[in-house]
Design a protein around this nucleic acid. Structure first.
Lengths: 261, 261
DNA sequence: CGTTGTGTTGAGCCGAATCAACCCCGGTGG
DNA sequence: CCACCGGGGTTGATTCGGCTCAACACAACG
């Protein structure tokens, strides 16, 4: 019994939230203590559960402390687009406290746990926690950047590039949250989820992952991903135009810029 | 000379901004007058000109009063993704006054004209113009909704669906701005721009538009688009699953939801 | 008048989707 | 204990949507 209590306290994993905020802005020790004290009103969700329903008004602002969630929309014919993955340390409904119903849903991809962010948010708005306030607005910018990155993937990149790019994003975000290192991180996603995020079919995600494994760029084993050659992946993802073919063709600038051309 | 002055005053086209704000929130007459008085510090841009550069810090908050612009990112190999189109009545850098450099650029697609939104924004933040404040935050939500709509297009829809969906979005937005009616609106875009927005090749945009014309769903003539059958387009765009084939297959729910299944 | 940008059209190819099995593994219940 | 089952992953065969390449038409413009 003591063991259970000890594990509940010692293992209380709000660390990702603290690490994320610290990565976004300088946070005082007092502010950090405030964030660490957010154990009140914890909530747990089972995989598949809906935290925020499409078209329903939003809930309280929360931090995700453990597990993975997705922001998504489902079309009337069943197709699904995942807009972004929500990882430990990320916030939910903190930046924009939109009362109106959201044009998206948030669903738990794994079992997960959230805490009420209200006290921290209030302190941030009061001016009592300026570091947290700065971190929150930086988080909003970061979220928008990730969204646009994802849009570039969907609109411009091949399956191969998309997967490489996406894995790099996850590595970076998880490392900030203190999960995983510069190469290895947990990846508790089915290929179907990857497919719906990347706008590909399940089968094609499978083949693309296999190609990356065959080329010894990544390794996937039981929910853990290892980026064997992050630099090579990065070259692929940003499409550094290393393809020799492209150097010979005029490369069709595909820009507007009639002036600078 | 009097004619020139008269045209400058009478034709001063800030109407789209007023209409847009009114569509987002109830705005008092005093607030409307404030917005109408924003003629100071007008700026004009030529097609192709960059209003905000990728990686450079942002400019003052502005309203776009005439012409079309695009928010975009260009990849190192020349590929370009247009994230959103900015139409008359839309704001630039109003919602989020991010000092940090943006991970995107804003370029003029046509000749365009902006006004300084600073006075209106200040009044909104002061509490002197609560209607404008509400409109601005509603505009931010609307912008995010459009971004997610666009992401669904890129990730899940076919070329045919994407074009139909996109044309409907433009019609709706332009009608709110007071340009065009429920069927007809100006469309000063090249097929290359459409291609870069929709993640398609120029050639395929061309063929898709032709199919829509052949089926008498739309008409395009000299920069004007006409939606001949908006309802049919809407059915296509939202993929109402009218394909008889899909009714017979189990439709592969493609959802998580192990519980509800 | 050439030139340049935009739209159009055809031929051929390729990346990715679809369809259909099959495997593996962890339940779960007879 | 084993048979069954379902979810996830893997694989091959085939189809198809969209891309590439290439040429040409047309209009605006200097």
């Amino acid at each position: 019994m003591t063991a259970r209590i000890a594990s509940r306290l010692a293992g209380w994993p709000i660390e990702p939230v603290v690490r994320r905020l610290r990565s976004l802005a300088t946070v005082s020790d007092g502010e950090e203590a405030l964030v660490r004290s957010l154990a009140d009103r914890r909530e747990r969700y089972a995989p598949g559960e809906e935290l925020i329903g499409e078209g329903r008004a939003q809930r309280l602002p929360r931090f995700l402390v453990a597990g993975w969630a997705a922001r998504q929309r489902v079309l009337p014919d069943g197709r699904r687009q995942i807009f972004s993955l929500i990882l430990p340390g990320d916030s939910l409904g903190v930046a924009s406290r939109n009362a109106p119903p959201a044009p998206w849903a948030i669903v738990a991809l794994t079992a997960l746990e959230t805490v009420d962010a209200e006290p921290a948010l209030e302190a941030a708005l009061d001016g009592r926690a300026p570091g947290v306030a700065r971190a929150i607005s930086a988080a909003a910018l970061d979220e928008e950047r990730l969204l646009l990155d994802h849009m570039v993937r969907l609109g411009q990149q091949t399956a191969y590039e998309r997967v490489a790019h996406f894995l790099l994003e996850l590595q970076r975000r998880l490392q900030i949250a203190g999960l995983g290192d510069s190469q290895r991180f947990p990846l508790p996603l089915t290929q179907e989820i990857l497919a719906d995020a990347l706008g590909l079919s399940i089968v094609h995600v499978n083949r693309t992952l296999q190609q990356l494994r065959r080329e010894r760029l990544i390794e996937l084993r039981s929910g853990v991903a290892i980026l064997l050659q992050p630099q090579a992946l990065s070259d692929i993802a940003n499409c550094e135009a290393e393809t020799p073919l492209r150097r010979f063709s005029p490369a069709r600038p595909r820009q507007l810029e009639s002036r600078s051309a």
